[in-house]
Design a protein around this nucleic acid. Structure first.
Lengths: 215, 215
DNA sequence: TAAAGAAGTGAACAGTGTTTGCTTTTTGAA
DNA sequence: TTCAAAAAGCAAACACTGTTCACTTCTTTA
């Protein structure tokens, strides 16, 4: 459908698109630093020198605006996952790399990431043709493909339910990403025990998960 | 400190305690069904036939009230985890059972559980002597103990960093609990692939995680 | 019984997302 | 070029939120 449409845009359409972009860029800035509760329509209006009501000419609700931010970020996660090189190294390394990439990318914008799953408006309630859904689905399918390949390879257990495994590993990746994003001390001294380097924590996490499905 | 103090309570104190209890019970009811955003002070006041301001004679803020709900629930999770029978069955079964119990209990009150980690007020910011922290820490230590035992047993890898493993498994349990709690279709048809029974999903998840640390 | 204090109230304050009339600007066809 | 239609923007208001404050009413205690 929407594949880089290069049709002539009228000046009006271009201006409108530009303002819209200005809004989501400002929203992006605030949201990345202070999360959903730091982002108010009035503040956003202030920051772009518009009146609060004007924003509703571009977004039907705050929800819709925030959803677009999430959507964009999940697209970014998906992109990064698809860019994981499959050629270099062993298949196990590749699989672990996929998990690590998901977590690391999610941690680049903890508020974006967490907001997609918290509150009572997770993306499950959205219109079925929405891109947030499809991006998440595709990221999930990415995980699934890895397991399919691994079973075909013989690297993973032959009796593995690949869909079930994908759900497990996805949930586990999600869990670490969210905890590390919201409990900064997850890696350091918040808990009893030694301090752990973030990188090390992510790496061993991925290794542990992948080991759970190996033959 | 506060160990079932049986000192004589004055009638005033007993009445005060009773009203306080009425408030958190009403809050509990609303929160369990509609989460934090469904719980407003005015609605709460309505439900217990008091004025909104009266609630502030018992709780200094809504945050404090909600924290008490979370605290209670995390105490409940901890309790359930400590009640996991260690005698019956193999050690592996015991370890898996601990993970399953954490997830199942969290799923009994998804809103309580998720609220503790979402927003920008996770329990990390609270006073260091707060019970929410200590309950969470103790639940985490519970996980850690299992791994210590497992390594001593020889069931788990001898080179295992037990604290690191505890963080990983806790994060993974957290992840599945949250996803299942907020994406009801996690187990059913939301994703591509077959429908999975919730119980089966939890069981295989726990098994996968534990396999990741076995020798 | 009188004074002190706690409990409860209703109104108000400051903040939120959102809607509504109105004005201004821009567009597209006669 | 002109003129109606549509789009863009704004200020004010609405309904809601958590919270505070002055005030009354009840309860305890000396």
């Amino acid at each position: 459908m929407s594949e880089h449409v290069e049709t002539e845009l009228s000046p009006a359409e271009r201006r409108r698109h530009k303002v819209r972009q200005t809004i989501i860029e400002a929203a992006e800035r605030v949201f990345a630093e202070e999360g959903e509760e730091g982002l108010s329509i009035r503040r956003l209006a202030d920051e772009i020198d518009y009146s609060p009501g004007a924003i509703y000419k571009y977004f039907s609700s705050k929800q819709e605006l925030v959803d677009e931010l999430k959507e964009g970020f999940f697209g970014c996660i998906l992109e990064k996952m698809e860019d994981v090189p499959a050629e270099r190294g062993s298949f196990l390394e590749y699989a672990q790399n996929c998990v690590e990439t998901y977590i690391r990318t999610a941690l680049e914008r903890p508020h974006h990431y967490s907001a997609a799953f918290s509150g009572s408006n997770p993306f499950a309630e959205r219109a079925p043709d929405n891109d947030i859904l499809s991006n998440t689905r595709r990221a999930f399918e990415r995980f699934h493909e890895v397991f399919e390949q691994g079973v075909a390879n013989g690297v993973f257990r032959s009796d593995l339910d690949t869909y079930l495994a994908a759900k497990s590993i996805w949930a586990s990746s999600h869990g670490l990403a969210q905890l590390m994003g919201h409990l900064p001390d997850m890696a350091s001294g918040f808990f009893v025990g030694p301090v752990h380097d973030s990188d090390h924590l992510i790496k061993t996490h991925a290794a542990l998960l992948i080991k759970g499905v190996t033959a």
